[in-house]
Simulated assay, not measured.
Amino acid sequence: MLLETFTRRKPSDFEGDLNLKQWVSYSLPEAVMDVIDANLVTPMDNRLQKKLDVVSSIMKVALDCCTESPARRTNMKDVVGMLQKIKIQLLAR
């Protein structure tokens, strides 16, 4: 759900062997700007790098939630904690 929200793409938008998870994974962290919804950040944003770092962190959490093996997926309690830390990072000056 996080991947769809932050990329504004659906899993059905991809064909062949490429899927949403792979597309995001291949783009992190260097090309996060290429995969996120263009409405979230603008190149002229004075806090652009900080926002890109935060979005990249959120995407990494999302990818952890999509791990093939259910036993290897991050549990939701830990996900909430990770997202709270990311929120603090965003709000810090």
Rank of each mutant, 00 (worst) to 15 (best):
G16Y: 12
G16V: 11
G16D: 10
D17H: 07
D17A: 11
N19L: 02
L20M: 08
L20D: 12
L20F: 04
L20G: 14
L20H: 08
K21N: 13
K21S: 15
K21D: 06
K21L: 10
Q22A: 09
W23V: 03
V24I: 13
V24G: 07
S25Y: 02
S25M: 01
S25H: 03
S25E: 04
Y26V: 08
Y26I: 00
Y26A: 06
Y26Q: 09
Y26L: 13
S27I: 01
S27F: 10
S27A: 15
S27E: 10
S27V: 07
L28R: 12
E30V: 01
A31V: 06
A31P: 00
V32R: 07
V32E: 09
M33W: 10
D34I: 03
D34A: 07
D34Y: 02
V35D: 02
I36E: 10
I36W: 13
A38R: 15
V41S: 00
T42G: 06
T42E: 00
T42R: 10
P43N: 09
D45Y: 00
R47T: 03
R47I: 00
L48H: 14
L48T: 09
Q49C: 09
Q49N: 11
K50L: 03
K50A: 14
K51S: 08
L52G: 04
L52Q: 04
D53S: 15
V54Q: 10
V54A: 15
V55R: 09
V55Q: 05
S57I: 11
S57T: 07
S57F: 12
M59A: 14
M59F: 15
M59Q: 05
K60F: 06
V61T: 08
V61M: 07
V61W: 06
A62N: 11
A62L: 14
L63Q: 07
L63K: 10
L63S: 11
